[in-house]
Amino acid sequence: MPSPVLAPRDASGTHVLADLGGIAADLLRDAAALEAILVKAAREAGACVLSAHFHRFGGEHGVTGVVLLAESHITIHTWPEHRFAALDIFMCGKARPHEAVEQIARELRADVRNVRTCERGVGPVG
């Protein structure tokens, strides 16, 4: 049986990688606080939060976390010993990933060290 033919549509989004430094080490170990910050930033950037999962590695180690969005995702990985966090934000549709980066950096009281943006996707087939 042949595959169904789908209507042409855009498959595109903006992928932002941000390196944030100068963050208080205690905050970079606080999985609950990081989850609240990322979920709030996603919503305020116009994204629909589907779920979130954050893991603290214990001791002096950091956190890794993901916020799953209808529009894609936000992830964070932290290194408290370096006062550093790496963000990965991919959003499609009308969501605004750069606003999410700005809000997260503000909430973390971080210096934004490096931001790289990649437009991803393909236009309608036809």
Rank of each mutant, 00 (worst) to 15 (best):
R120L: 12
I23C: 06
I89V: 15
L87Q: 02
I76A: 12
V5Y: 08
N114T: 12
L20S: 04
D30R: 09
H98D: 12
A36S: 15
A45I: 06
A100C: 08
R113A: 05
R96T: 07
R43Q: 15
T78N: 04
H82D: 13
L17N: 09
H53P: 00
V122D: 01
P80S: 01
A11N: 11
A100I: 06
E44S: 13
A110F: 07
E99Q: 15
D111A: 14
V63L: 03
M1H: 11
E44D: 14
S72Q: 12
T117E: 11
F90M: 12
E99T: 14
R83P: 01
V112I: 13
L6F: 14
L17G: 09
V122N: 06
A110G: 08
D111L: 14
A7Y: 08
A7C: 02
E81F: 04
L27G: 04
F54A: 02
T75L: 05
I74S: 00
V63W: 00
V63C: 03
A32K: 15
K40G: 01
F57R: 11
L20A: 05
R83D: 09
H15V: 08
K40T: 14
I74F: 00
A36K: 15
G46N: 10
A18D: 07
A100F: 02
G93N: 08
G65S: 02
V67A: 12
S3K: 14
A95M: 11
A105P: 06
A86M: 08
I104A: 03
A31K: 05
V39L: 00
W79T: 12
A105Y: 10
V101W: 02
G121E: 08
G59Q: 04
C48G: 10
L50A: 10
V49D: 04
R96S: 10
L27F: 02
E71S: 02
R109T: 13
P124W: 09
A41P: 01
A32F: 03
M1P: 05
P80A: 01
P124N: 10
K94I: 11
A105N: 09
A33P: 00
A52V: 02
F57L: 14
I89L: 15
R116W: 03
P2S: 13
E107Q: 14
R116M: 09
D30G: 06
V115F: 07
G93Q: 12
M1W: 08
G126C: 09
R9Y: 08
G121Q: 10
H61Y: 09
P8G: 11
T14D: 09
L28Q: 06
H73C: 04
P4C: 04
A18R: 04
C118L: 12
P80Y: 01
V125W: 13
R83K: 13
G58I: 06
A32L: 10
N114A: 14
M91C: 11
E35Y: 00
E44H: 07
I104W: 01
L6K: 09
H82A: 15
P8D: 14
V16T: 09
E71K: 05
R120K: 13
A11P: 00
A33M: 03
A11H: 12
A42Y: 10
W79V: 10
T117P: 01
G62A: 09
C92Q: 13
P97A: 07
V39G: 00
G13I: 11
A33N: 02
P2F: 11
G62D: 07
R120I: 09
F57V: 04
